[in-house]
Design a protein around this nucleic acid. Structure first.
Lengths: 401, 401
DNA sequence: CTATTAATTCAAATGAATTGAATATTCAAG
DNA sequence: CTTGAATATTCAATTCATTTGAATTAATAG
């Protein structure tokens, strides 16, 4: 039971201004993935004329998004002036709201963190959260003077699912007092910058696209270990949110009919086997309490046998789930990340027994089927910022060649 | 092991012509979903000016896509001229290629079938298939003279998965001699019309959008009972194909770890419980052979107890799967259809025990969670045609409101 | 040293949407 | 019954971004 998410997608007409915006994004996106790169080359990639690209690149350069990195002699003809994205040409704020704390990060166009913080929350009602968000924003701006006038917006990450659905109110994750609140609008008004609202898994997935292992991927899935277990999906460069913004509720997919009883009422939910909650419960049985990622990291480094047992068991439904994701989404790769130590994620990936019967089990593939993504407690906050950057970088029209 | 599918999506720039094309599609799509409707109303929906909409509608009318259905007095002001799509303003061909036969349909803009046929195939090597496709095309044109000059293209449906993947060569469904063949290009050259290549489930899903239960839906999933079991996914009006065109391999999702052994090597694939293959095998145990949809229909009408037992059992993993689909894709609805009799589909839907723990189990929903779609042996062929129509009707830019 | 190749820029043209004014038709008020 | 407000549509001129075609710059090949 959380705030409503407005995911109404409206079909709209296009005009010269939209065209311009779109082309700017196309050019920026192509420079990002091909940098350093010249105008003529971008023209070839984009299908635009060199003249158009030239105009756009001049504009982007004078606005500080791109930098000229000198000419590159490559055969005959006039050597092309090479351009690259100007890392500090713009910044974005990412704010993750959890029930008892807020995590925030200020990130630049290259995904580098310029500021990060954690603030405790006495309460998570809208007024308090919004006031805290403003304070954080101010603090970030003060500590990074360079960011002045370069703020693209804020990506706010809140626990899903959104709206009043069968999985709402499953305890720990819910925020109070947000029912029926238009969170994006309230935050936008208070912070005075564009605001994007998103769930943790999707935010994390986009981080990987902006600055991570998915930089060159257009279609991939991100399994996010948060409080529960989420799936962020990107297909053809587009984020998949679902009709009501609740796509990717991976934790409550049933992997073992008649298995463990889950808080949602189903039996055999993946979350009861493979998630932070699951590992906490498992370790609890042996009198070990886990408070954060650090605890897990230490236990793993100490080769705690109970933890190893858990991993061995957790990897079985996880392998099955990855096979399912592959067959349903046919991604270029599946990424694992979130609030799990890198070492454990790496270990899990090594132990996976990926099913042969999968469309991702293809001859001649070079990319591994499963990759490790960003992890740590800042992941979701960074993802919020990444979403904002993604929005300025990625165009919305994608046409088949 | 089937032909390669070119699903490379390229980011391209926009220009005046693309803008025009896009806006034409926007207008056509909005007229379709709101017909009968006036110019000013479309302007409001689309965000375009009335002048632009007026120009586009005039053009579409003179090209025969739209028809003026008279003025409608609705309060003050000049009564708006109402427009509707001209059902016979354009037609599309749908061709399904199966190992031993080809099914074809000629369909108009409203999704009405103007011609349908079945042709046996001695062999399914490219040359034979392509020659047959040309013959069918000619036959269709001859039998529907009205179609002359109105052919938008052909949608060719072939069994997936495409490429050399872990699920290839699972027997009955494979076509021979198509390895590495650029099927779309070959067909396009031979048929001399634009060709879209697609798998059965996706094609069926699009049928529902063009003329079925999904006319007003932007995000939905279609569970297709074909030889195997496929999932067609549409999110925000966009077809989800996956990175290699193989998204939606629902049949090989594991619903019961350690369960039935599947031809793909996995254990507990959904296909071994809920599919045409599964019902055939089940009935075979009792000496009943099933050759087509008709056989199933008769058995069901006769209340065959073995068939009823199968349905009872099949519905359990199906319910679980629908829950999974809901949680992963968050669709407005899940549609069931394909090579299963309506009566059986309806019965299955009635018997479903949909999980409570699903993001689709939302308060105040009006649409049922599961709908029955088109069925019958022509479904996939009709879907091919629907894809072509969808392509002319649906714009590719979708922006958030 | 000259011809060729390639990148970039300059200037004018094009195409589609927008803007603003004008016209047509109905409803409602006096 | 007349007049004014509301609504739909059209006409004409303008705007905006891209395209087109010619000119300029700079490197390599011969």
């Amino acid at each position: 039971m959380c705030m409503e998410r407005n995911t109404t997608h409206k079909i709209v007409g296009s005009n010269a201004e939209r065209t311009r915006l779109h082309n700017r994004q196309v050019v920026l996106g192509l420079v990002r993935t091909h940098q350093p790169v010249g105008r003529a080359e971008i023209a070839r990639y984009s299908g635009l004329t060199t003249q158009t690209v030239s105009n756009i690149i001049s504009a982007l350069e004078s606005q500080g998004y791109l930098v000229d990195v000198g000419r590159q002699v490559r055969g005959r003809g006039l050597p092309a002036s090479q351009y690259a994205v100007n890392a500090n040409g713009a910044v974005a704020m990412g704010i993750e709201v959890r029930p008892s704390a807020m995590f925030a990060a200020l990130v630049n166009l290259s995904g580098e963190t310029l500021y990060a913080s954690r603030h405790a929350l006495e309460s998570n009602v809208p007024d308090i959260v919004i006031r805290m968000a403003c304070a954080i924003m101010k603090e970030a701006k003060d500590s990074v003077p360079m960011a002045a006038g370069k703020m693209l917006g804020a990506g706010v990450v809140m626990p899903g699912p959104f709206g009043d659905v069968g999985l709402s109110g499953l305890g720990q994750s819910a925020l109070q007092g947000w029912e029926g609140v238009d969170a994006a609008a309230r935050l936008e008004a208070a912070l005075n910058v564009p605001v994007i609202l998103e769930n943790d898994a999707t935010a994390a997935a986009v981080t990987e696209h902006v600055s991570g292992v998915a930089t060159d991927l257009g279609s991939y899935c991100y399994i996010y270990f948060g409080t529960g277990l989420g799936l962020g999906v990107v297909t053809d460069g587009k984020i998949m949110r679902g009709a009501f913004g609740n796509a990717g509720e991976l934790g409550h997919v049933v992997v073992k009919p008649g298995g463990n009883l889950c808080a949602c009422g189903n039996r055999g939910c993946l979350e009861t086997y493979t998630s932070r909650l699951a590992v906490q419960q498992h370790m609890g049985k042996f009198g070990v309490t886990i408070d954060g990622v650090d605890d897990l990291e230490n236990l793993f480094a100490a080769k705690n046998p109970h933890l190893e047992t858990w991993i061995e068991q957790a990897v079985i439904p996880l392998s099955q789930t990855i096979g399912m994701i592959e067959n349903l989404f046919d991604p270029q790769a599946v990424i694992l990340g979130g609030a799990m130590p890198d070492a454990i994620l790496d270990d899990m990936i090594e132990r996976l027994i990926l099913p042969e019967g999968s469309v991702s089990n293809r001859l001649g593939r070079t990319l591994p089927r499963v990759l490790r993504g960003a992890s740590g407690r800042m992941t979701a906050a960074l993802g919020g910022a990444a979403l904002v950057i993604h929005d300025t970088i990625t165009p919305r029209i994608v046409a088949r060649s």
